[in-house]
Design a binder for these strands. Structure first.
Length: 553
RNA sequence: AGGGGCGUAGCUCAGUGGUAGAGCAGCGGCCUUUUAAGCCGAAGGUCGUGGGUCCGAUCCCCACCGCCCCUACCA
């Protein structure tokens, strides 16, 4: 793209009607052609960018209200409508033409006839292109092929599109372009539109679910002075006035629990988290998380609630409790529950010999022995080993074995519970089994979807675990203990259960999408500008008026 | 980060060691019930970027850029 021609400061105000066009876009020939048509349209006396159009129906409403009317009824009733939309198909036939407008994602055919609209309007119509936005008024009728159509009597230009739409049959196939120019994707790819409408519906239903159960929706800081609430590498930013570094939050957890201390016994937040880590089919650096907390509750109650939530949500949004996801049919009418140890035993690879019993895994040194047996097999397979790095504790080994052996098999909705305490720094210890946290995760289609636990509310235990994290060091650990959080706990956090649900992954499941980018409107891509997909972006600036010395930044 | 794949007209894609093609879009013409409208005509390209091999590279080799997939990282 050509760089903008900069108006020197202090230059006289430009005349109101003069249109400065500093930017030009590919395809240049078509862009210039359309600008030429725009000029012609204006010189014919039409406003190019009128402020308003008084419509009576959207294309969708016309379909809903008159879609059932037969041809004879329509000609008898002579329903007058004014409707606006974008031209997405154009079939001129000399002195008459068909076109399709879209609005609300619905296509509506219009019929424009020279005899009917008159010379002037037909002249305007001939200067229109695919992508232009118009308003038409007239009555409804059915064509020979029985399609509900507007018999156009008046035509109004609402916006001349200066750039063409993508190819009408194949649409946008270049995924990079689809993400960088999502506006085009949404016009052209019906499925993309449906995904984001459904995403909105899912979030609406989630809010409804929690609202009607008395949870309060809150917003907590996105910028945190101390890292916390999860283990992840953060983005760092800077506040100038306070001269301080801040982290974009990796989780809202510690703030939400402060609110429970403050007497908001049931709270939830739906908002973004930011994690400075890898990008792949199920990870994006900013992603949306639902977190909710309820006082006087525990992890077991949360599992029940979660099951209800998912079953209701899926049924409402998809119309059935059994949905298709890729090759699988996911049945949300019943959830499996397995302890982490049971899951390891259940999916223990047969080639490794008989699976250990859960008792063996629980025994002191048991995870180490199981890992050694597993690793023999993994070495032969050339796959990853358990406990390969550092000197993991028994609990950490159980977590690794679970991920290596069981996680990918958890296709149907499955709760995994009894997490080792070592990998659960914010969860409450189980009274009867101190090596375990009262924690669960929900797995669906091999993805971790939710994570919930009984919250650690013993300030001394929490302080000890925070100090261990700080001592451990590394980019993922906080540099200092969050003293104020310990202070809040010292004022008393009631027995509380809390859970996080990854909204993006949930939307993936309910839209049968297999990449998180498909369910995020503007996923992060390198370079980050829509221009990067263009062939020439930096050079070819024909009018280089700016002397080098004048450039300032 | 490692491995694999891709990058050709505005879009969707063919193709070849001898400087390139189709459909759609755009342009000119014809066409008053079409729906991927049709017919006729003309135009459109630094074959991602930069090096190398070769008489000659869009094609072969190397590097870089971007995207995709797999693996790794990632509570």
């Amino acid at each position: 793209m050509n760089t903008p021609a900069i108006l020197p400061p202090g230059s006289p105000k430009r005349p109101a009607r003069e249109r400065i066009v500093p930017l030009e876009f590919e395809p240049l020939d078509q862009y210039l052609q359309r600008r030429k048509k725009l000029n012609e349209i204006e010189s014919l006396g039409h406003a190019a960018y009128p402020a308003k159009y008084d419509w009576t129906h959207t294309p969708k409403q016309i379909g809903e209200q008159f879609g059932q009317r037969r041809a004879e009824q329509l000609s008898a009733e002579r329903v007058e409508v004014r409707v606006a939309g974008r031209i997405v198909a154009l079939r001129p036939h000399g002195k008459a033409a068909f076109a399709h407008l879209t609005g609300d994602g619905v296509r509506l055919q219009i019929y424009v006839k020279l005899d009917v609209v008159g010379e002037a309007a037909y002249k305007l119509f001939q200067l229109l292109d695919l992508g232009d936005i118009i308003g038409v008024s007239g009555h409804l009728f059915r064509t020979k092929t029985n399609e509900l159509t507007v018999w156009v009597e008046k035509l109004t230009l609402l916006n001349k599109a200066l750039l063409p739409l993508p190819e009408k049959w194949h649409g946008l196939a270049d995924v990079e372009m689809r993400y960088r120019r999502r506006y085009l994707d949404l016009i052209v790819t019906e499925r993309a539109r449906e995904i984001f409408l459904r995403r909105a519906q899912i979030i609406r239903e989630l809010r409804r679910f929690f609202d009607e159960r008395g949870y309060v929706e809150v917003e907590t800081p996105m910028m945190h002075p101390i890292l916390g609430g999860a283990t992840a590498r953060p983005f760092v930013t800077r506040h100038n006035t306070f001269d301080m570094d801040l982290y974009l939050r990796i989780a809202p957890e510690l703030y939400l629990k402060r609110l429970v201390v403050g007497g908001l016994d049931r709270v939830y937040e739906i908002n973004r988290n930011f994690r400075n880590e890898g990008i792949d089919a199920i990870h994006q650096p900013e992603f949306t998380m639902l977190e909710f907390y309820q006082a006087y509750s525990d992890a077991g109650a949360l599992m029940d609630l979660t099951e209800t939530l998912f079953r209701e949500l899926v049924t409402t949004v998809c119309g059935t409790a059994a949905i298709t996801y890729g090759e699988a049919t996911l049945d949300f009418s019943r959830f499996t529950r397995l302890s982490m140890r049971e899951a390891i035993c259940k999916y223990w690879p047969a080639a490794t010999g008989p699976a250990p019993s859960t008792a063996e895994i629980v025994a002191r040194g048991g995870p180490r022995r199981a890992a050694e047996r597993y690793n023999e097999f993994a070495r032969a397979q050339g796959t990853d080993l358990a406990g390969e790095f550092g000197s993991p504790s028994d609990g950490e080994l159980v977590g690794e074995l679970f991920e290596l052996i069981a996680e990918k098999h958890l296709v149907q909705p499955t709760f995994i519970y009894d997490f080792p305490i070592e990998i659960s720094p914010l969860a409450k210890r189980r009274a009867d089994e101190p090596s375990l946290a009262d924690r669960f995760e929900l797995f669906i289609a091999g993805m971790e979807i939710a994570n919930g636990f009984s919250e650690l509310n013993d300030p001394a235990d929490q302080e000890r675990r925070f100090r261990e994290q700080v001592e451990k060091g590394g980019q993922e650990s906080p540099k200092e203990v969050d003293i104020d959080y310990i202070r809040a706990l010292s004022h008393g956090l009631p027995p509380t259960a809390g859970e996080g649900i990854g909204i993006d992954r949930l939307v993936m499941l309910l839209t049968n999408s297999h990449a998180i980018r498909e369910v995020i409107l503007f996923p992060l891509l390198r370079a980050g500008t829509a221009e990067a997909a263009d062939t020439d972006s930096s050079e070819a600036n024909g009018s280089d008026d700016t002397a080098p010395g004048q450039r300032s930044k």
